[in-house]
């Protein structure tokens, strides 16, 4: 028999006494450590960011000025940069992850599932700094020499694809980021697909549905919550990823419509400037950036986990 084993300590009171009674309390203390850690994160970051919060108020998030010399700080540029890279990454990663998940769950013959699944999981295990470095030395030159000039030539009428091809910039960062989140999302979505009740799928196939129709009308509706969870999980990772982005974003404090232009994300700005921030207000502003990033990912990941749990329970229970 598998599964939960609950032995309330009170049943054994009077037995061996001390150790048995203390044990649940001891383990609970460690579990409470997670909650304490979380509270400490928010408390410490808020306290240390307070000088900046007090000084700039809400203006912090709408001001694009970032000037350590005059002591005026605004988070607009890194916030927009974070959003742009994430949007680029998700635009590429979403369809590809769905495709991979679908391939692994429904299309691949049994002998291919193992190796392809393993390759995707290896892709997820490669440390993000390796992606970042590879992006800088391999992807950025290709972007500068081929992809961006081509995009500029054919789609240059859009402000998004105007400007000089630099190689490093929002677009390159978004693409490297996409490569990083694809394996995570693909793995979660595949798991959700695999949990579709077998009899429902077989019923649909039995009625003459094609694979596409089974996926669209049975597997996706069945796993809606789980899929949303998986996508948000990828989103949370993309927002907070540091190393893969820092290498290829170009680290420029500027706001531009062009995806070719170098920029900054919250994470890359922290990575580059945090140890250099001597001035108290400068440091507090960076910490406030960290706090903003933490709260955004907290909300997104929190929702993702709730949906994933509900999704998995529904899928498994049917």
């Amino acid at each position: 028999m598998r599964g939960p084993a609950v032995f309330p300590a009170r049943l054994r009171r009077g037995g061996r006494g001390g150790a048995d009674l203390a044990f649940p309390a001891l383990t609970m203390t460690f579990a409470a450590g997670v909650v304490v850690l979380f509270a400490a994160f928010i408390l410490v970051l808020s306290c240390q960011a307070w000088p900046a919060i007090e000084r700039f108020g809400l203006g912090f998030v709408v001001s694009g000025e970032w000037n350590p010399v005059t002591g005026r700080f605004g988070a607009m540029v890194p916030i927009v940069g974070t959003m742009l890279t994430t949007v680029v990454a998700m635009t590429v990663a979403l369809p590809v992850s769905f495709g991979i998940a679908l391939f692994l769950a429904e299309i691949a013959p049994a002998w291919l599932k193992g190796p392809v699944g393993a390759a995707i999981e290896l892709l997820a295990a490669v440390p993000s700094i390796v992606y970042g470095m590879w992006g800088l030395f391999v992807i950025a030159p290709i972007m500068a020499d081929r992809v961006e000039p081509w995009l500029g030539e054919h789609l240059g009428f859009l402000p998004l694809f105007s400007g000089p091809p630099m190689g490093v910039g929002i677009l390159s960062a978004g693409l490297v980021l996409a490569l990083m989140v694809i394996p995570f999302m693909a793995a979660v979505i595949r798991d959700v697909f695999m949990m579709t009740p077998r009899n429902m799928k077989e019923a649909a196939y039995g009625l003459g549905a094609t694979t596409l129709e089974v996926v669209r009308d049975v597997m996706i509706p069945c796993g809606r919550k789980g899929i949303a969870g998986g996508v948000f999980l990828g989103l949370g990772r993309a927002l907070g990823e540091t190393m893969a982005v820092t290498f290829v974003i170009g680290n420029a404090h500027n706001l531009s419509w062009s995806l070719f232009a170098p920029g900054n994300t919250i994470a890359s700005m922290l990575a580059n400037e945090f140890t250099e921030a001597g001035d108290a207000l400068y440091a507090a502003s960076l910490i406030e950036l960290g706090l903003i990033l933490f709260m955004i990912t907290f909300v997104i990941l929190g929702a993702a986990r709730l949906w994933l749990r509900v999704g998995m329970e529904q899928g498994g229970g049917r």
Partner: peptide
């Protein structure tokens, strides 16, 4: 598990 690791560094 998926919290931004750079913020852990700041903390």
């Amino acid at each position: 598990v998926s919290a931004p690791s750079i913020v852990v560094g700041v903390f």
